[in-house]
């Protein structure tokens, strides 16, 4: 029994599949939640890293670059374990779900920071020159001129990472987060039938990534290409 539902192993494969569907869908919900939170963290952290990497002072940009590379070149699993087991030693005790989402966000912030950097650098120098000529201070130039033009440009690439994050959520199962794969594994452990639950999870993932990709494309199409309007 899981989430209050019972599985039915007595009436053949299809009845079994139908009976575990509600459980898997609950797991899917957790998957979605973890993805969204992780994505949000990645978006925010990535922007911070991107800004730090572009700083004029090497004292700031070099460590930022090193940290980004380090995060990018090390496995999510190990980063997750690190956060899960080491943070409590420092007095930070988070629920497993948040630790997992945080780990996802950190791992992907390394990628999103690259995307932001590319978008920022793609804003033509002419814009910077015009801002300078108009005597707009650098801070305001960045927030009001560069960023509103850079962000729409990078939405498709960022959106693709949302889909990637969804595919990495199952790693969180190692710290007991009850996402889809974990639910399937528990069902399998207890009924000795792994084939049905795992195959269903695979199918659900295909549907999930299809829908998510379509959503990202929709957002990309509806966003104004020449920059977010500022009133």
């Amino acid at each position: 029994m899981l989430f209050g539902y019972h599985w039915d192993t007595a009436h053949g494969e299809w009845a079994f599949a139908l009976s575990i569907l509600p459980m898997l869908l609950r797991g899917l919900l957790v998957t979605l939640e973890a993805s969204v939170v992780g994505f949000f963290v990645a978006m925010v952290l990535g922007l911070i890293l991107a800004v730090l990497k572009g700083a004029r002072s090497r004292l700031v940009s070099w460590p930022a670059t090193f940290v980004t590379e380090f995060i990018r070149d090390t496995p999510l699993l190990v980063q997750l374990f690190f956060l899960y087991y080491v943070l409590p030693d420092y007095g930070i005790v988070l629920p497993a779900f948040l630790t997992g989402a945080l780990a996802l966000g950190i791992q992907y912030s390394a990628y999103t920071s690259e995307v932001y950097r590319a978008g920022i650098e793609a804003v033509e120098p002419g814009q910077h020159e015009a801002a300078k000529a108009l005597d707009i201070p650098p801070g305001r130039t960045f927030t009001h001129i560069v960023l509103p033009q850079a962000v729409p440009r990078v939405i498709p690439a960022l959106g693709n990472y949302l889909v990637s994050i969804m595919k990495d959520v199952p790693v969180l199962s190692v710290v007991t987060v009850l996402e889809m794969l974990n639910v399937a594994k528990i069902i399998g452990d207890q009924t000795f039938d792994y084939l049905v639950p795992l195959s269903m999870v695979g199918g659900l993932y295909l549907i999930l990534t299809l829908v998510a990709s379509a959503f990202v494309r929709f957002v990309d199409v509806s966003l104004p290409k020449r920059g977010l309007p500022l009133r």
């Binding site: 969804m166 595919k167 990495d168 959520v169 199952p170 790693v171 199962s173 794969l181 399937a184 594994k185 399998g188 039938d193 792994y194 084939l195 795992l198 195959s199 999870v201 695979g202 993932y205 295909l206 990534t209 299809l210």
Partner: peptide, 21 residues
């Protein structure tokens, strides 16, 4: 489409736990 549309860990577990069944 199948291997890009599903999670690696799911694929790994499927091959190790589900395929024998």
């Amino acid at each position: 489409e199948i291997f890009r549309g599903t999670s690696l860990l799911v694929q790994l577990f499927w091959l190790y736990f589900a395929l024998p069944i």
